[in-house]
Amino acid sequence: MNEMTTVGFTEMKHGSRADYELLARREDEYAAGTADRILAQLAKLGDGLSGYRISRLEHSIQSAARAEADGADIDWIVAALLHDIGDELAPHNHDSIAADIIRPYVREQVSWVVQHHGIFQMVYYAHHYGKDPEARRKYADNPYYQDAVDFCERWDQASFDPDYRSPPLEHFAPMVREVFGRPAWDGTVLRKGEREPLVR
């Protein structure tokens, strides 16, 4: 008997159990390669937005290196590395894209900070564009507010330095693989409402 290699349906509503079991296996196999696809996408940031003194890739690596130097845990380090991964495809909501990528695999605290880092960063430059630099204050009652302030101050806004010595992207690859090797949406990983310090 030949093993199925494709589904038999042309409309999802006509799929059989065997069709969906095949797809589940294929999706699991594909998901296992997520970390490698993320690392490849990160590498593309080396050719992205110009005008800064370093590439977006180097900015991402510097952010992660600063997090690691601060003694941050793996969730924070990987988040710092990936916080701008959405830049190429979603320049106006890159923070939301990055947060959605990491959300199934890291603490809620971390994905919330990544999702909102764009508005928190505005404190440094919005006044130059006639916008409100304190727009982040609308989140002042959120338990992760100060974490976002600190993430931006310590790691994000400070990481545009061409003289900063950071490791190559490969240094962080095992961490990315560890985080994205976790079971998605595991409550013991998401730890809703719990906080870990950025600096140890």
Rank of each mutant, 00 (worst) to 15 (best):
N2E: 11
E3Y: 04
M4E: 08
M4F: 13
T6F: 12
G8I: 09
E11R: 15
H14D: 12
H14K: 12
H14A: 14
S16V: 01
A18Q: 12
L22F: 01
A24Y: 07
R25S: 08
R26T: 14
R26D: 14
E27L: 15
D28V: 11
E29A: 14
Y30P: 01
A35H: 02
A35T: 01
I38S: 10
L39E: 05
Q41T: 10
A43P: 07
G46V: 00
G46W: 03
G46Y: 03
D47E: 12
D47A: 04
S50I: 10
G51R: 14
G51V: 04
I54L: 02
R56E: 11
H59Y: 01
I61T: 12
S63T: 15
A64V: 00
R66K: 15
E68N: 00
G71F: 07
G71T: 03
G71R: 01
I74D: 07
I74T: 10
I77A: 04
V78H: 00
A79I: 00
A79C: 13
L81I: 03
L82V: 02
H83W: 06
G86M: 06
D87W: 09
D87Y: 15
L89G: 14
L89D: 11
A90Q: 13
A90N: 08
P91M: 11
H92F: 05
N93L: 11
H94L: 05
D95L: 03
S96K: 06
I97C: 00
I97K: 01
A98T: 02
A99V: 03
A99S: 15
I101G: 03
R103F: 07
R103N: 10
P104L: 07
P104T: 08
P104D: 02
V106Q: 07
R107K: 12
E108T: 13
E108I: 05
Q109P: 02
S111E: 08
S111I: 12
V113L: 10
V114D: 06
V114I: 15
V114Q: 05
V114N: 04
V114P: 12
V114G: 08
Q115T: 09
Q115N: 15
H116M: 09
H117D: 00
G118N: 12
Y124E: 12
H127S: 13
Y129H: 11
G130I: 03
K131G: 00
D132V: 09
D132Y: 08
P133S: 07
E134N: 14
A135K: 11
K138E: 05
Y144N: 09
Y145H: 10
Y145S: 08
Y145A: 02
D147S: 08
A148F: 01
A148R: 04
F151W: 10
E153G: 06
E153I: 14
R154Y: 13
Q157D: 03
Q157T: 04
A158S: 15
A158K: 05
F160H: 14
R165I: 08
L169W: 02
E170A: 10
H171G: 04
A173V: 10
M175D: 05
R177C: 06
V179M: 04
D186K: 04
G187Q: 06
L190R: 14
R191D: 06
E194F: 07
R195D: 04
R195P: 02
R195T: 10
R195A: 07
E196H: 14
P197Y: 01
R200E: 09
